[in-house]
């Protein structure tokens, strides 16, 4: 992960539910109470980079903040992914779902059932990748045709997160280069 990697920067900006364990003066506006101190025990959504730093740092033996699994990694979502990875709109959960999940798993390995979530995510990635490649190799061929099931594909492709979009692009570029080479061969 490079320092200049835009995707990792955007992943850093994803919100995580965090419980503040310490009263912070002057930060009340985070909890819709401007001008007042942020009370201990308040739950606020903080970006990952901030809550991560707060969670790992300690103030005289006390943790400053406590992380909770975000809604996009809730058991409900995990069950849906286990049941049918292709029907879940991952983009609605998070625009950088996989990277975000990896970062959260790093931090919360005891909270989530760790191995299981990892296995579910890998299986999801694999199953969706196969679907992506099928769409990528057919994209642009029947433009304007709009036959059976084409709306289904649009629905699925809209639900891809960013890393899956890169994958789609890579798969599509390979097929496109190949097709243009073969087209050149027959045209000459």
């Amino acid at each position: 992960m490079s320092y200049y990697d835009l995707d990792s920067i955007l992943t850093d900006g994803q919100k995580v539910p965090t419980t503040i364990e310490l009263e912070v003066p002057g930060l009340g506006y985070l909890d819709n109470a401007p001008g007042r101190p942020l009370k201990a025990g308040t739950k606020v959504d903080l970006p990952l980079w901030l809550s991560q730093m707060l969670a790992v740092s300690a103030y005289s033996t006390k943790h400053i903040a406590d992380l909770e699994p975000p809604s996009c990694l809730a058991p409900r979502v995990m069950n849906a992914l286990k049941a049918d990875p292709k029907s879940v709109d991952i983009r609605a959960l998070s625009s950088h779902f996989y990277e975000f999940a990896v970062r959260i798993l790093e931090l919360l390995d005891e909270v989530l059932v760790y191995q299981d979530a990892c296995a579910v995510l890998m299986e999801t990635w694999r199953r969706r990748a196969a679907e992506i490649s099928d769409h990528a190799s057919n994209a642009g061929q029947n433009r304007g045709g709009g036959g059976m099931g084409s709306t289904d594909g649009v629905e699925f492709l809209r639900g891809l997160d960013d890393s899956e979009r890169y994958l789609f692009r890579a798969a599509h570029d390979g097929t496109k280069a190949m097709r243009s080479w073969m087209g050149e061969m027959t045209k000459k």
Partner: peptide
């Protein structure tokens, strides 16, 4: 791309 994704997910 697929292998990269799996490697990242399985890294931790």
């Amino acid at each position: 791309g697929v292998m990269d994704g799996i490697r990242k997910l399985g890294s931790n």
